[in-house]
């Protein structure tokens, strides 16, 4: 199209300019040159076409990276140095060596090793991590709600011995000032996460094996009633409260990751973030938790 147009234009131009045939050779030569130029131009356009596609691909890729970065908010990357610290913590070395101590919990190599892929988590890891979640919620520079994390011995004591056994656990603070009270539940060889959600008025139960335990939620409801009677000297108003035991939540695809899912449920609840993790993230999260414990700080500020 371009070529034909140029020829036509050149012809019109030369008709005016060329008055004798002696110059015909010149304008034929000119036309020939124009055609050649335009052919080269055509080739260049053709050459540029794949480049254009590539550019669009790059744009698409850039958008993907942006989306990924957004996702990475919940999965911050670990640096090479972090992985070196993690490896060193795992050892070799004595399993009784205390690697870090905070919140009155001495974390030994034995405890850190429960975070190796495939291992069952122990109470020390869950309780230390729970303290990290509480610490973060106290930090006023972020906007996370106030969260209390009961240790892993709370629920067992409450369910086996009753309210009087845990009555004094809250004598130094007011539990009702928190938006979320997280209660990790240890069931023989399984970890689950329950939560008292004062904002949404819900007794919540999150089990990565999608089990349900109405009894646990009843025990927590009863605990709130007793706590209100003991500390506030009044009956608790349960108007609008409900039990919440969702089954469309991330689930473990093996027999060893429930502790990690429990900690993730708790961590997401403490940020009021929607669960966007699944089994594929767990190996990374195990490493991240080791790093977070060693640094006494959660990676997500």
């Amino acid at each position: 199209m371009i070529t034909l147009y140029l020829i036509k234009k050149e012809k019109e131009k030369t008709k005016k300019d060329v008055k004798n045939t002696g110059q015909e050779d010149q304008w034929i030569e000119n036309i020939r040159k124009k055609i050649e130029d335009s052919l080269i131009l055509n080739d260049q356009i053709k050459l540029n076409e794949p480049k254009k596609d590539y550019y669009e691909e790059l744009l698409k890729f850039g958008k993907l990276i942006e989306e990924e970065q957004k996702e990475n908010k919940n999965f911050p990357e670990l640096s090479d140095e972090a992985y070196e610290d993690i490896e060193e913590a795992i050892g070799p070395g004595s399993e009784n060596e205390v690697l870090i101590e905070e919140f009155n919990i001495p974390i030994k190599r034995h405890d850190i090793r429960t975070l190796i892929n495939g291992e069952w988590l122990n109470d020390e890891i869950i309780n230390f991590y729970g303290n990290l979640i509480m610490e973060r919620s106290k930090n006023t520079t972020n906007e996370y709600p106030p969260v209390y994390f009961f240790n892993t011995f709370f629920y067992g004591t409450l369910s086996s011995t009753g309210y009087r056994a845990v009555r004094r656990w809250t004598r130094k603070f007011d539990l009702f000032l928190y938006d979320f009270v997280i209660v990790p539940i240890h069931l023989g060889n399984h970890w689950c996460c329950s939560a008292i959600n004062f904002k949404k008025k819900r007794f919540e139960y999150y089990d990565s094996l999608h089990g349900s335990d109405r009894n646990a939620l009843y025990i927590l409801r009863n605990y709130i009633q007793e706590e209100s009677r003991d500390k506030k000297k009044c009956e608790y108003d349960f108007t609008g409260w409900e039990n919440y035991c969702p089954k469309d939540i991330p689930s473990q695809l093996n027999g060893y990751d429930c502790g990690i899912f429990t900690l993730l449920f708790a961590e997401y609840i403490s940020r009021e973030e929607e669960f966007d993790f699944d089994q594929s993230h767990i190996e990374y999260v195990r490493d991240r938790i080791i790093y977070e414990i060693l640094n006494k700080k959660l990676l997500i500020d």
Partner: peptide, 12 residues
Amino acid sequence: ITAASEQIGGGF
């Protein structure tokens, strides 16, 4: 004072 034992859990 309560003396509690180590708790471990993995799933099943």
